[in-house]
Design a protein around this nucleic acid. Structure first.
Lengths: 190, 190
DNA sequence: AATTCTTATTAAACTAGTTTAATAAATATC
DNA sequence: GATATTTATTAAACTAGTTTAATAAGAATT
């Protein structure tokens, strides 16, 4: 779990003792391609750290999938909304590839935060990071055209386009497969 | 500062001693209508609690204002993005009315978090709350039409429409004054 | 009360997307 | 290797917004 450790320490100092206390609760878990970590109606009790693989986070709105995020290596993730609000999830977490995660239960997260001020601070700072990402996401949705958002994604996460089918990327960008195809055509003609 | 105290305790238990330690750093501050708490290029060093009034949080993109939020009574606020990232702000915080806030500096926030695990937890939980609000915002931007978003805002914050000019609300909803006017006309004809 | 300034509506032409349906290309399965 | 399935593109008709400009209504100032 060296990469998990490294990721935590990229946020704030954590003593070896506190780190050891925290890490003891994480368990390795494997999901085959096409299986679900979470489905609508379930309560989510886990936080995940992505060791290897790709998971899509999406809802089903009137028969069409609405992809909110693709989680790849190094991401901390869960259905954070349902996790925080302690409500039945409305979302899917689906493994788009064979996936390896480290997982910790909500109760154990609480134990860790109660035991260690340093790790509670890590919790606050990682929440801040999530805020920054969401803030940038909102600004992109508001201020950029679909074409600009496509180009932005191409620049920021180029490997995604090799791992994930285009119609899911279209959904992530908030448009239809037809729409994305048009944009790509427009761009290739220039 | 009773309402500030009450708001903090709505997140998590805080002992009287810790609360007293925290509150000592807050100072009352008044901004006249039309004045700025923050302008682009400045670094933001304060967190605010809105006691009375209304502040708009916006950027200027190619000559047009892009309203991200209206802060009203009971809100904790700042330019959170610039605050967290420690960068020059790109935004305005403008008092749309005569406004009374309680303010605390970044350094003092750090002192408070260092001194009190309970208040650091409050910090984490309020960051979680911000996450939930942003999450819902993103979902609205992605899944609702402009008309639906207008109706949603009308339902959730009806008083805003009495305090804030319509073209700023249009901007907040991500459309032009003309666009919002069209939507209102369409709705009134039904 | 008259004037100015700000805010809201309307009209007309335009645009970047949508939906539906057909087709083509790529991938997986037998 | 042929067939079936999934994924991507294209075309055509449509739609909800945009921009620009003119007008109307409301509020503040003299």
């Amino acid at each position: 779990m060296e990469d998990l450790k490294r990721t935590i320490r990229s946020y704030t100092h954590v003593s070896d003792a506190d780190m050891e206390f925290g890490l003891q609760f994480y368990k390795k878990q494997i999901f085959k391609k096409g299986t679900y970590l979470l489905k609508p109606g379930q309560y989510i009790d886990s936080f995940y750290f992505m060791k290897q693989g790709c998971v899509s986070y999406y809802t089903m709105e009137e028969g069409t999938t609405q992809v909110m995020e693709f989680f790849t290596e190094g991401y901390f993730f869960t259905d954070l909304y349902a996790y925080i609000e302690d409500i039945q999830s409305q979302s899917y977490l689906e493994a788009l590839e064979d996936t390896v995660v480290y997982t910790i239960s909500k109760a154990d997260v609480q134990k860790v935060f109660d035991h260690s001020h340093q790790l509670e601070r890590f919790g606050r700072l990682s929440m801040q990071r999530t805020f920054v990402i969401n803030f940038q996401r909102i600004n992109q949705l508001r201020n950029l055209s679909n074409q600009e958002r496509y180009l932005e994604l191409l620049k920021k996460r180029p490997t995604l386009f090799q791992r994930v089918p285009q119609y899911l990327i279209a959904s992530y960008l908030g448009l239809t497969p037809v729409g994305l195809s048009k944009i790509r055509k427009r761009l290739s003609q220039k």
